[in-house]
Design a binder for these strands. Sequence first.
DNA 1: TATTGTTATACTCTATAACTATA
DNA 2: TATAGTTATAGAGTATAACAATA
Lengths: 173, 173
Amino acid sequence: MATSDLIQISSEIQTCAGLLLKFFSASLEQRLEDYGVPMSGLQYAVLRMVQPEALTISTLSQRLGLDPSALVRMIDSLERKGLVKRGVDPHDRRRNPIEITKNGMRLLAAVPVVSETDPTFRAVRSLGPASAAQLRDLLIQVIEEFPEGKLVSQLMSGHTRTEARPPAARGRS
Amino acid sequence: MATSDLIQISSEIQTCAGLLLKFFSASLEQRLEDYGVPMSGLQYAVLRMVQPEALTISTLSQRLGLDPSALVRMIDSLERKGLVKRGVDPHDRRRNPIEITKNGMRLLAAVPVVSETDPTFRAVRSLGPASAAQLRDLLIQVIEEFPEGKLVSQLMSGHTRTEARPPAARGRS
DNA sequence: TATTGTTATACTCTATAACTATA
DNA sequence: TATAGTTATAGAGTATAACAATA
């Protein structure tokens, strides 16, 4: 295969990634609005990131690749909605770890990243389980080739490669 | 495979698409800046769209999923840079098909979507040709499952599926 | 000195609504 | 009446610079 082929393919992958993200975001934001708590996909991402553990704005900004100042108003907005609260670090009073609230957890439970009924899920399901997993693995492989892509595991909480996934019980079928 | 597995995979694909797009855009915009004509990835996308044929703002806005008014200033900016010009449709004087200029074509030739030297290309190349093509095909398959995804072929000029690609001469290796 | 969170500010992106010219 | 392009405008998102509190 010629280099120009690979360049063409790279370009197409780029276009597809953009489209996919657009579709995904649209359906997620629609469901958030339907739930009665409209917010951007990024705000939702922050909410998910602080679910397993409280994170400071510094940490969040590093993981999201954004300036800390850009997060202040976003956190304000989430706090106004009662979904998170600024906590206190007794060991370092400069830090205000962002904690998720009961309301925040309720929202995450009610509005999953991907719902069974939305176009995103239907599109991925139509690939079949094997192709879907393969697509995910290929995407991760590409991302890990980027210097900034090493922290992908931090963003995909609970992620394990297909072949390494334990055969534990996994909810309803 | 359980439904919850597919939902998890869908969510991971979503995260990956977002990261990938971010990395891709960053390297493209860096190269545009190095070339001396800084612009957003979207402006560059518009430039590419009007390369094969002049398109009206209406058509561009439909294909990009943006409001026409959002494109006016973007086109202004491209016109100020001398990369496109507003043309005239003799059959319908309301229309101003956006034409690419010599300078615009020169830029597209000098700054390809994906360069051989940038992280995007290296990441995709490291997959190997077969996996790269497969990734592209899986992405297209997913996108075509979305109602809005039918026009993907319009956005990927010259795209053909791997198995349908003619074995014609394809430049240097 | 360095770091955390913050404010003020400016710029980009995008949509809505209203308008003009043309069909 | 409907469509193409435009303007004015408002809101979100994001970065830079400067700052206070804390380490």
